[in-house]
Design a binder for these strands. Structure first.
Lengths: 223, 223
DNA sequence: ATCTGCAAATTGGCTTGACCAAATGACGTG
DNA sequence: CACGTCATTTGGTCAAGCCAATTTGCAGAT
């Protein structure tokens, strides 16, 4: 199958491969344009188009009169974020970050969102009463608060941190945290957070969130 | 003030302006390369380089043998906050989260780490003096602070958010942020952050970090 | 009148060659 | 050894031309 893409795209990929293969380490210089073009079998304008693409995506840096330099080669894709080491680290991170986020949320949260949060907690209470694990409600509660800021990055971060607890790594420890008493305590802390939001009190919400996640981490570890 | 950026960047901006001004609506065709080049007073290869930059950032679509078509004119309508990942969202997220993290860092940071931070800023000043972009130093500064908390999750989050700015999505906007004045302002803000850390004043550090990232976002946008 | 098909015109894709400008490095001078 | 000068290296840009994909228009057939 012949590559039908534009030449500059094919050429940019070939240069990326040269860098990935280790022929040119980060910080080092690539061959001069004329030489590199000949080496790759393309004209200089076509190579220049490829270099512009690579410059835009941050692979290289072009310095006039000096040369073409390889930039930070290691940049894992934004998706496969492997977050998390220990449970205590994870819960500390959630406590600090979600406390900061809820301050933003408290300022602008709508009545509609508050109603959704209350419904989520009521569903959580129902789950607990019926001996079901209210993990989805727990997740939704934290996520809705982050989303209410209007900043999708907050939601993404909270989501990643939450889901980290249910990764294979954490799975072994899980199971202790699932007593009815633990969930009831968590539920009450959630209601306290909601109350602070309904009062539109950012500092109270921040404190309530911090208390909840710190206590949650302690429950997770102590059993 | 003469624009010293590469011609393709200037040209790309001029074409963006033509589109933004409404001369060419979404879905319509731009003039042919030869004609557009003459109209803008640049050579065809230079215009082609600009078009590749615009193609990468999704402003236009180039169809071989057919023409150059304007893509999504879609502008975020938000009254200050735009939906979807945007520079303003990114910098807001960094301001909130890194401000929260530095509070943790200020409590336990060591003299050794403070020395490393100072060395990083000195290297940054050197880069600026030599007209080089101190992106690596900027990145290191923020990362070292996050790492000094001892919680690897903080470091990972800060790293991911920082690198987000250099993703292909944001790349089209980059280049404005590269004046010596901007970097000098950023450097001074960094020194202010360091001073607060050296004083072991968590609240001052928090304020300085928030100020820095807010101002940085403004510089990035206003260009 | 409409449809079909092919050829010319249009338009992007790519190359060659050349010259300019910035950065670098070697060399000679103090 | 320090410093300034100048040739070399390297990226920046332009000009002209040919090739390939697409579109357009017109002639011929239905």
């Amino acid at each position: 199958m012949t590559d039908t893409r534009r030449l500059y795209q094919q050429t940019a990929d070939r240069v990326r491969q040269l860098i990935a293969k280790g022929d040119y380490q980060a910080g080092t210089r690539l061959p001069a344009e004329r030489e590199l073009a000949q080496q790759l079998g393309v004209s200089r304008p076509s190579l220049r188009e490829a270099l512009i693409a690579l410059e835009i995506d941050g692979t290289i840096e072009i310095r006039m009169g000096s040369g073409i330099y390889v930039l930070n080669t290691a940049k894992p894709a934004g998706n496969g974020r492997s977050l998390g080491e220990s449970p205590s680290e994870l819960m500390q991170a959630r406590a600090v970050i979600e406390s900061a986020i809820i301050v933003q949320a408290a300022a602008s949260i709508t009545q509609e969102t508050l109603a959704t949060l209350r419904a989520t907690l009521d569903a959580m209470a129902d789950d607990i009463a019926n001996a079901r694990k209210p993990i989805e409600q727990d997740r939704a509660f934290h996520l809705i608060i982050a989303e209410s800021t209007g900043n999708t990055l907050f939601a993404e971060i909270v989501e990643n941190l939450f889901d980290e607890r249910h990764s294979p790594l954490s799975a072994g420890i899980r199971g202790h945290f699932e007593t009815a008493d633990s969930w009831t305590a968590a539920l009450n802390e959630h209601y306290a957070i909601l109350a602070a939001l309904e009062a539109r009190d950012p500092l109270a919400a921040q404190a309530a969130m911090h208390t909840h996640l710190t206590a949650s981490g302690r429950r997770w570890l102590e059993n």
